[in-house]
Nucleic acid binder design. Structure first.
Lengths: 221, 221
DNA sequence: TATCGAATGTATCAGCGTTACAACAACGCA
DNA sequence: TGCGTTGTTGTAACGCTGATACATTCGATA
């Protein structure tokens, strides 16, 4: 039944859908639907929940690269790809505007993102608090995805530009503390992490560890 | 009549509104409304148009600072402020998801923004094409505004951080200039060489070699 | 004054989300 | 085997929605 509703939603993204159409598609009458979901919002919530399951299913399929910032990059692209592939779902998940009521299921992807920014913060690679970095990434990621859906015009170049801009903003490779001496180390870490093919993944990993140690020593001195 | 509709929309942002409620508020019957607006979407379009008029009215009240990037900053803040002040309007203007159909009135603010980025480009202050810079600013500005409305949690700090991140991304004050990155790597090499006790002499030497390779790879790319 | 078109009220339609109520099946228990 | 309880489903209806056909009124123009 959820599948039928999802199909109708996917068939006309952004449009509203009729409970009776869902019932007809399943071959059931309306009280049955109300017995299980209680209201239309209940059905929508169930569909959204399934949407997040689908999203997280796709996302968890990709293993971690070991580098949190690289994982943020991959997560960003997966986020955009999911939104463009399932605009109906995505609209319900992130595009519905009801001040105060935000789907509880949104917490799960946000938690993953916060985990990544927290790891990045542990490595002293963020120039803003971990929470704000996660919010920064999330809000720009949602913004670029929703905009592409609204305009019905995928723009991978814009998505990549916004992604790198956001990452640069939270890692401080450009904005604020350029004058600080350890900013140079932070920028170098980012440069190495963003180009793992130059030294190879293993040496890059080691390099990042060394630079982190160097940065820590500098901070404590 | 548009005012009455606007009032109802403002009264319950994100919610749908009833044409009959509008008619009752104005003291008129439905055929009158349909005579002037043709359909509900027609009324909504008229309200959106008025919303943009209001928005541009506020915006044009502030004079240009003479610096296009500073104007982009001011425009960003005005955009967010308008969205938070009139979430109902803003949702209709930028938050409705109907692939293919985007309000024509959106073109006006976008035109202003494109004018600013074009001026910035003339001054050689952008590292991306003028059009992409405008899209970058717009998409992040909308994203941060919509998100604050959805969460019903104004966050000026986040807005400012995203704003500076976006501006840094298009002006290249952070990510772009290769020379700056090379300078960062070079500075890190000096730092490591000056503190061989942190990693030990052998690892420090290896680190310097790697960083040199990384710097060369960056320079040639 | 006569006429035409714009503006407006009356009444109605199909469709929507939601619900009260009755009918039915499946189960534990005597 | 028979009974009652519980969970599920169909019938019918309510009030509301956006939208429309039709008759009517009003004002400007010729």
């Amino acid at each position: 039944m959820i599948a039928a509703a999802a199909e109708l939603i996917a068939a006309s993204p952004g449009e509203d859908f009729s409970l009776r159409a869902v019932c007809d598609a399943v071959g059931v009458k309306m009280p049955t639907l109300y017995h299980f979901f209680g209201s239309k919002q209940g059905l929508v919530d169930a569909v959204v929940e399934r949407g997040f399951d689908l999203y997280l299913g796709e996302k968890s399929a990709m293993e971690s690269s070991g580098d949190p910032v690289q994982d943020i990059r991959a997560g960003w692209d997966a986020h955009v790809a999911f939104g463009l592939a399932h605009p109906g779902f995505y609209t319900l998940m992130y595009g519905t505007v009801q001040p105060g009521h935000s789907p509880a299921a949104q917490a799960r992807p946000s938690e993953i993102l916060r985990g990544l920014t927290a790891r990045a913060a542990e490595q002293h690679r963020l120039v803003v608090p971990s929470e704000q970095a996660a919010a920064h990434i999330l809000v720009t990621n949602i913004g670029v995805t929703l905009r592409q859906i609204v305009l019905a015009a995928p723009d991978p170049e814009l998505s990549a530009a916004v992604r790198e801009g956001a990452i640069a903003a939270i890692t401080g490779t450009g904005t604020g503390p350029v004058t600080e001496r350890n900013a140079a180390v932070a920028a170098t870490i980012e440069l190495a992490a963003a180009n793992p093919s130059v030294l190879g993944p293993t040496q890059t990993q080691l390099l990042v560890e060394w630079l982190t140690a160097l940065n820590d020593a500098r901070r404590t001195s």
